[in-house]
């Protein structure tokens, strides 16, 4: 991390004038823009009326104390994105622990140590900057619902086992399509195509978490659990096929080659978590179920069918989705044969 930090807009909340001046002047000395509030109510008014990168919040205040402000901020959709550093005296350790448990970003003891002040403020601003970047990233890759959940639960990198449906989608014979057209046309095609695929995934509570060439991987049922994740995945796939019909009609009218996709879905236990670097992290899944979904998608080429799913996925579908059992198949690298089902497009 660099020692020079981009200046931030900070709000110092303290009922004590000496503390306010001290914090404000210290932070201004580091290049930040600082506003002050004398109590909780004033702090909330300022927070709602303007945009801030960080709040330094005193616990002991008359009328509305630091806890109350913290709780209100954490429950507020907009305000909870602003990190809050609690400022307290040494003997308030219990209170501080409570605040950090509630969701405060950090704390500083009073009298404030200038070196710690600088370090903690810069660290919090840096974390906020990364979160803002990640938020932008997630909002392109996931629904707002998922993005919000991720932001609420934090970006812990630890993995966990979750039950989810994994989908792989590929454009059939993409290489030969690419060879027949200009590079700009290929990029335009991919952009249009992905826009449709994303719409289908996010419209059914899924998260797109990988793009590679013309291929796409999506997860349903994680990071937010939905009981009906198998149905969601299959409905998203059916919508993809439906959207592509319209897309192809339009392409045909422009004398452009039609595109076909293969979609494979498998359901089961996956290891889910965040992978990547500080600059770029995504939510992803690994494990047998993921491999299986990729194999099933690959198998759609052999059978020339658009949508294949595994047995566990098929067992989670309502009656209006028609499936046909295709019998067991022994995939490369698998010990047991897998029962495969074709889903009939509407």
């Amino acid at each position: 991390m660099t020692s020079r930090q981009e200046p931030g807009r900070l709000l110092v909340v303290d009922d004590n004038k000496v503390n306010r001046i001290l914090l404000a002047r210290g932070l201004e000395g580091h290049g930040h823009k600082v506003e002050t509030a004398e109590n909780g109510k004033q702090a909330l008014e300022k927070l709602r009326g303007d945009s801030f990168d960080l709040v330094l919040l005193d616990i002991e205040m008359p009328e509305m104390n630091g806890y109350q402000v913290l709780e209100i901020c954490l429950q507020d959709h907009e305000l909870r994105e602003i990190p809050i550093i609690m400022t307290s005296s040494l003997d308030e350790l219990d209170s501080v622990v409570k605040c950090v448990e509630l969701g405060a970003e950090d704390y500083l003891n009073k009298p404030i140590n200038p070196i710690l002040l600088r370090a903690r403020v810069n660290a919090s601003l840096e974390k906020k900057r990364l979160r803002d970047e990640q938020r932008k990233l997630f909002q392109t890759f996931a629904t707002k619902e998922v993005a919000d959940e991720l932001l609420k639960t934090g970006f812990s990198l630890g993995g966990e086992y979750v039950n989810a449906s994994v989908m792989f989608v590929d454009i059939r014979s993409f290489t030969s399509i690419v060879e027949k057209q200009a590079p700009a046309e290929t990029i335009e095609l991919l952009n249009d195509y992905f826009a449709l695929m994303f719409e289908a995934v996010t419209g059914h509570h899924g998260t797109v978490n990988q793009l590679e060439g013309d291929g796409l991987m999506a997860i349903f049922g994680a990071p937010i659990h939905h009981e009906a994740h198998r149905e969601h995945a299959v409905r998203a796939a059916l919508e993809m096929i439906e959207l592509l019909k319209g897309f192809n009609m339009e392409r045909a009218s422009q004398a452009k080659v039609r595109i076909k996709v293969g979609i494979g879905i498998a359901t089961g236990r996956v290891i889910a978590g965040y992978t990547g670097t500080q600059q770029r992290a995504t939510y992803t899944c690994v494990g047998d179920t993921v491999n299986l979904a990729a194999r099933i998608e690959d198998h759609t080429k052999d059978l020339d069918l658009p949508l294949l799913i595994d047995q566990y996925t098929s067992e989670g579908l309502p009656d209006d989705i028609k499936v046909e059992a295709l019998g067991p198949i022994l995939f490369k690298g698998k010990q047991q044969p897998i029962h495969i089902f074709a889903v009939k497009p509407n």
Binding site: N16, K17, V18, I21, L22, R25, G26, P111, I112, L117
Partner: peptide, 24 residues
């Protein structure tokens, strides 16, 4: 402690701090 405080607030602001304290 006082010197540390002066360093933190900047010598320019120490008067402001003292005045705030004497007032409050």
């Amino acid at each position: 402690t006082f010197e540390e405080l002066k360093q933190m607030s900047g010598a320019d602001f120490i008067n402001e701090l003292i005045d705030a304290f004497l007032e409050e």
